[in-house]
Design a protein around this nucleic acid. Sequence first.
DNA 1: GTCAAACATATTGTATGCAAGAACGATTAT
DNA 2: ATAATCGTTCTTGCATACAATATGTTTGAC
Lengths: 221, 221
Amino acid sequence: MAENIVQGLRDKIENGIVTGLFAPGERLDEVQLAKRFGVSRTPIREVLMQLSAIGLIEIRPRRGAVVVEPGPQRIYEMFEVMAELEGMAGALAARRHTEEDRADLLAAHDKCQQSSNSGDTDAYYYDNELFHGAIYLAGHSAFLAEQCTTLHRRLRPYRRLQLRVRNRMKTSFSEHTGIVEAILAGDAEAARALLRSHIAVQGDRFGDLVSTLAKREARTA
Amino acid sequence: MAENIVQGLRDKIENGIVTGLFAPGERLDEVQLAKRFGVSRTPIREVLMQLSAIGLIEIRPRRGAVVVEPGPQRIYEMFEVMAELEGMAGALAARRHTEEDRADLLAAHDKCQQSSNSGDTDAYYYDNELFHGAIYLAGHSAFLAEQCTTLHRRLRPYRRLQLRVRNRMKTSFSEHTGIVEAILAGDAEAARALLRSHIAVQGDRFGDLVSTLAKREARTA
DNA sequence: GTCAAACATATTGTATGCAAGAACGATTAT
DNA sequence: ATAATCGTTCTTGCATACAATATGTTTGAC
């Protein structure tokens, strides 16, 4: 075999959960997954253990693994924490960014502008991830970057839904511009505040999120 | 068999790492651990996978698992993030605490006062954990509470070292008093700022931490 | 007719066995 | 004598087999 079956499986299953291939609430049968991926139950079990440790699935003793369905309350809380962490990354980036970081950040921002103009939400979603990644790097805190990336992954499906909301992509991009300015100007607190409100699910946006969730719920039911 | 060997093993090994029974850098041999705990390699492997997912150990393909040694840089970063999350919890607690939370927080604070006066750093460490736990609860964000608790656990050995520094326990307790006042007064930003500087490893304290780490390093070498 | 208990089946949890790769040592050649 | 290469051994990685429990169905009794 190659080298690390488990690593590959982990990414596949995790992506399957995050993209909705495995719906929330769905029971993950070990032998089914094993057959599906052409491996034995052992690596499957190890992957499930890892995902359980991250909190993506829940393993009830003797009763199997199910994809957790984070209710609106919990999703809101996750965005809340994410907003704070991103704000922190922005503040650090404003204080610590180097010339190289500056160039990378501007390049990522340019890419966002292009995909935003093209109207391709999927492309924008990808470039948006790169943009935020550039901010993490500019913050020069490897640990913070890891935490942010992990949370970003877990929130991926919901962030994707948000972009579909009317005009959200344009608004998002214009917010980016302010964030870049604050970071490059070295204004830590401005960068923090702007990133916080960029991420946070406030006011109307929470209603949008919940209703979109409800729709998706109805579709899978 | 009982019910969940893996859960028990996970706690034991995790605690072993956190308390230093398994030293950083040490190689964790599967068969040795299996013999030690009287089980087969399978549950041991699953535990190691979980710990690897949390980041407590590192599994290098075909080369076994080693306890990760987070360098001073990384430990500093972890405290930095922790400070921000705790600050956030404090701000939320200031805004959202109920009458019940108020009572719990004051009770936890009282216990800290007692153990602080007794001079027992271990007792204070425990009560301190309860105190911070009460703040998480008062913040009414289950997700944030989980994140904080996880980080708290990972930083446990270093926090313990800090308390041994001269007068740190008294200083810590007096800081608690200010935090409690800010939270109960509903002053979110004050609570945030106080908790941030309560946790953060700033100025002299970073030097203290590094030198204490170096000493421990020399002892295990 | 309905409810409860017992048995059967399916699925999880643990152990063991087999294969492949990495580390360490020995032997040989320069 | 030293270094390099080949081989052996130890350990990880995956698969399969066995044991234990939970769930569902069927049958019997009230």
